[in-house]
Design a binder for these strands. Structure first.
Lengths: 171, 171
DNA sequence: ATATATCCCCAGTAAGTACATCGGGATTGC
DNA sequence: GCAATCCCGATGTACTTACTGGGGATATAT
């Protein structure tokens, strides 16, 4: 029997707005590429190096980088001294862009777009709630670029949200 | 061979902020109970009736209502002429309350609370992004009550979000 | 007391998803 | 040619989702 996983995976505690491992890994690798881009826009980083720096399973990261490349967010070079680099400056790539490449569109209700589901009777206005929730997420994720993340910059809107009492507490 | 599903389920198009069938069904049933409560706070509705009105698989709804009851959001009565009713007025139950009963806390990164994950190097500030995103969702879901949903009322904050160009478009 | 209606609990199941891993092929640089 | 690196599709395992099912507990009506 081949032992595949190694450490048994933690049991999932469901939640709406689930950030998957794929997205998390992608963002982390992209911040590394953003730093490299700032030093020299032509510099390339290898999968192996990115994986080591951010502690990501290398083969898994490889397939994630492939998706980002197909989506046009990064460029690749094969062969000795190959690697990846951003396809555009870090201030032109938003967190939402990256999420959408890996997990598809932000926000879904029973696997459909919120504005597409139809509700009947007193449930009718649920649709508005979902659309507003999606808009709220977008107001953060579409306004934050890779450049903002590496610099630790926040928008005024984010500052307001983070200043709400309990914003940093689990609930 | 027992045919279990009937209609084959649609293939999932991944997304962050996934509203599950459980949550969707729960909300729909709760809006029905909210209307009943407004007419007469002691009135009870049966699973079968709720299921029929909102087109929800009855046995599945039964287990959802069980969770809502254990969480204290609704009250039940067994026997002939039994059924469910809200445990409190509709303006004291928020959409977030209901989501949390069924899907756990809003927002998770790789199955952990956003504020709990630690990032290294240039990825450090990702945590702030996730916390702000969660706060943004809360600003809608914790402020919208069942009473608001059945009345079709929106907060000023929601109006602003919904007024953003493209808010109703898929992206 | 009995019949009937309803909730209650726990087990099971088919399909799909998440998170990887593997083997080998295609490019590039020396 | 040879080594390094990306590229691509297949495979694997554990887990989750969205249900279904059987039978027990409780309430009401007669």
């Amino acid at each position: 029997m081949t032992v595949h996983g190694g450490i048994p995976r933690k049991k999932r505690d469901n939640a709406s707005m689930q950030i998957s491992a794929r997205v998390d890994y992608a963002l982390r690798a992209m911040t590394e590429l953003a730093v490299a881009y700032d030093e020299d826009p032509t510099r390339r980083e290898k999968t192996e190096v990115l994986a080591a720096r951010q502690d990501i399973p290398p083969r898994f990261l490889e397939s994630i980088l492939g998706q980002l490349r197909k989506a046009g967010l990064i460029l690749s070079q094969r062969g000795a001294d190959g690697g990846y680099r951003l396809a555009m400056p870090p201030d032109e790539i938003t967190v939402a862009d990256i999420i959408r490449v890996l997990d598809g569109p932000l926000g879904a209700v029973r696997n459909d777009a919120p504005e597409a589901v139809t509700y009947t009777g007193p449930a009718e206005h649920l649709r508005t709630v979902w659309v507003a929730t999606r808009a709220a997420m977008r107001s953060v994720l579409e306004k934050t670029t890779l450049a903002d993340v590496v610099a630790g910059r926040t928008t005024d809107e984010m500052d307001d949200l983070l200043a709400v009492p309990g914003a940093w507490d689990r609930r």
